[in-house]
């Protein structure tokens, strides 16, 4: 045991733990405390006000529940779209295909771009006189043209679409890696048994891709609930407050100086995410050990 202590010294952990605890975990705990106060920019004294901040979050007079709803909706919709499209693409470029490396590289490319760049680029494309509308007009689809970031529910779908555009390559790549781990022998055996494409998909590919599904779902969920950049750059939560999500509202509250309320929203998020994270880790650990 002594030799263990010598080759695996505890101080190897200190650096990472120190930074993680102080700049990552501590703020959330400090935030919990402040979420019960009226901490704001306008007043130097910070008073304890109990559950008041949480009451206003859940009050029907306020819009916070709707913002939370927006966040959940974005999470669910983009998770589904990215999973379906990512899997579909992985199935396509995972097989023999002329130029498959090119396609893989291109589809993954948006993953490495910043949301800021993506958002600005699509602001120009979705503008009333932008590329999308003029493309539709060329095909005589004038009635389809609209102000994509203002009209009706389209701001939501614009955000979802761009988010999927940016994120599905990553999901595809994870599924591709999952596909690589499936032994060819299963498919050979299935071929001998005369299985068709759908049969192989249903009984071989999908079940064996389960770990990949777990990983992509985790990534998509965690990303979706914490979404900020793309909303902020594309619509700033607008028009009005229509597309506001949790993180964009927290930033707005920060801007207005309502720090206590902002930390309350953050703390709510913290509890939800830690619970989700706990179950995910238990799930993943089980899989690794199994």
């Amino acid at each position: 045991m002594n030799i263990q202590k010598k080759i695996y010294p505890a101080y190897f952990l200190f650096g990472a733990l120190l930074l993680y605890v102080f700049l990552y975990v501590l703020p959330s705990l400090v935030g919990m405390y402040y979420s019960f106060t009226d901490w704001s920019r306008f007043d130097d004294t910070v008073r304890f006000i109990g559950w008041d901040n949480y009451k206003s979050i859940f009050s029907s007079d306020e819009n916070y529940l709707r913002y939370i709803g927006n966040t959940l909706q974005l999470t669910v919709v983009t998770t589904i779209l990215k999973t379906v499209l990512g899997l579909g693409l992985a199935l396509i470029v995972g097989q023999k295909l002329w130029g498959k490396n090119f396609h893989r590289a291109v589809i993954f490319l948006p993953t490495v771009l910043s949301f800021l760049i993506t958002g600005l680029t699509f602001q120009s494309i979705l503008a009333p006189s932008g590329l999308l509308n003029s493309f539709l007009r060329t095909f005589g689809l004038d009635s389809w043209t609209r102000n994509w970031l203002y009209d009706g529910n389209w701001p939501f779908w614009s955000i979802y679409g761009i988010d999927v555009w940016k994120g599905m390559g990553y999901i595809m790549t994870i599924f591709l890696a999952g596909l690589m781990t499936i032994s060819k022998e299963y498919y050979e055996a299935a071929d001998i048994d005369g299985a068709n494409f759908w049969g192989k998909l249903r009984y071989i590919t999908l079940p064996l891709l389960l770990p990949s599904f777990a990983v992509t779902t985790v990534l998509n969920l965690v990303y979706g609930l914490r979404v900020f950049d793309i909303v902020y750059v594309l619509t700033q939560g607008g028009p009005g407050d229509q597309t506001e999500v949790l993180y964009s509202v927290i930033f707005k509250l920060f801007g207005y100086g309502y720090y206590g309320l902002g930390t309350a929203l953050s703390s709510l998020m913290f509890v939800i995410m830690v619970v989700i994270g706990y179950f995910i880790i238990r799930l993943l650990n089980k899989e690794v050990e199994a």
Binding site: A16, P27, G262, S266
Partner: peptide
């Protein structure tokens, strides 16, 4: 504890205090 950070959100406003 560390890996839990993958899902843990940052409390941006409280981080200012820290």
């Amino acid at each position: 504890f560390v890996v839990l950070g993958i899902t843990m959100p940052v409390n941006h406003i409280a981080l200012i205090k820290v």
